[in-house]
């Protein structure tokens, strides 16, 4: 599994991440390799889904794009400007066009503030006030996320259900009119019927505001529903990146195949997961040489240990980092 290789990049991308590396020093000798050279981009108005299991680095990628974690190396370009090289002042400005929504809607909202203040805050941070915006902008936004009604803004977060809190979060993220929205498991903490509301809402808003989205989730069915392209990560590397249908219909990377075969009750044409993956995920402190998936892969050879695979186009727009991709 590689992460190297820029073959999958487009010319007209809004967000471009190149060779992103995030490492945390553990002690003097050891380093946690959370993200090891990830490259991808997102075209305007589309959604890229990132899937993978815990420890694959998908959340770290999102946080590193937002510069909540400083990348060890690599670049994050937003409309061509590299945010990793920005001064603090420039970065503050750039953050206006990138917003992130986190998993837990309730703890993402300061419990002691009123809802209207929470939403308005997105403006105040930029030194703007409601007067600088078209009249009724905040009310319109609240209505867009399904929180219309005069009294709603006066209440505090704990008076709302999880789904409503997530709506508040979304309204708050949209108030600065961002280009890119990064969503880290935005519906995973919610019940399925509420999850459906949030997913529908995100699709509507994507259309209404022309948003470009990065959707991070462990739930393959959810990613399948919202994404235009899907990227599969394993142990800090990219395994496969492909258009949605292509990835689910013809998965080529052995890990992607194992992941899809593990979905309970799936109807895909795949052997049982137990035949596609074995053992346990290695430690990110001392990841395997060559392809990182080789220790669990039924097809691994000596070449996989010696040589790291790079992303190769196996069918139009479908890239796989594997020496022996499935056809």
């Amino acid at each position: 599994m590689a992460g190297t290789g820029r073959a999958a990049l487009h010319d007209d991308a809004v967000l471009r991440v190149v060779d992103l590396v995030v490492e945390y020093p553990l002690d003097r000798k050891n380093v946690v390799h959370a993200v090891s050279g990830v490259t991808f981009d997102i075209q305007k108005g589309t959604t890229l889904g990132i899937v993978g299991e815990s420890g694959c680095g998908k959340t770290t990628v999102g946080r590193a794009i937002m510069q909540l974690e400083r990348p060890t190396s690599g670049s994050v370009e937003l409309d061509g400007a590299d945010v990793t090289q920005m001064t603090r002042r420039e970065l503050r400005a750039a953050r206006r066009s990138m917003q992130m929504i986190f998993q837990d809607p309730v703890s993402s909202l300061n419990p002691s503030r009123r809802v209207k203040d929470l939403v308005r805050e997105g403006l105040e941070v930029w030194g703007l006030s409601e007067a600088d915006m078209p009249p009724g902008r905040i009310d319109d936004l609240m209505a867009s996320v399904g929180l219309g009604g005069p009294a709603v803004g006066e209440r505090r977060p704990h008076e709302f259900s999880g789904g409503q809190c997530q709506r508040i979060r979304i309204a708050r993220a949209l108030v600065t009119d961002p280009e890119v929205l990064i969503l880290d498991e935005p519906a995973s903490a919610l019940d399925v019927s509420v999850q459906a509301q949030i997913l529908n809402l995100l699709e509507d808003l994507k259309e209404e505001f022309g948003l470009t989205m990065l959707f991070i989730s462990h739930d393959l069915a959810v990613v399948r529903n919202v994404s235009d392209r899907v990227m599969v990560m394993y142990l800090g590397k990219v395994c496969e990146i492909a258009p949605n249908s292509s990835l689910f219909d013809q998965p080529t990377h052995p890990y992607t195949r194992a992941l899809l075969a593990s979905i309970p009750g799936h109807q895909l044409d795949l052997p049982p997961a137990a035949e596609l993956i074995s053992g346990e995920i290695p430690s990110p402190i001392d990841p395997p040489s060559g392809c990182r998936f080789r220790t669990r892969c039924p097809h691994a050879t000596e070449r996989c240990a010696a040589e790291e695979p790079t992303l190769v186009e196996t069918s139009p727009g479908h890239f796989t980092a594997c020496h022996y991709p499935h056809h």
């Binding site: 937002m66 992130m100 993402s108 600065t176």
Partner: peptide, 22 residues
């Protein structure tokens, strides 16, 4: 450690603002 502090930071709020308002 709570998410709302991350959120404020991601929105571009200054440190002073986070201290005082969040």
């Amino acid at each position: 450690e709570r998410a709302f502090v991350d959120v404020a930071q991601a929105m571009g709020a200054s440190k002073l603002r986070i201290l005082w308002r969040e």
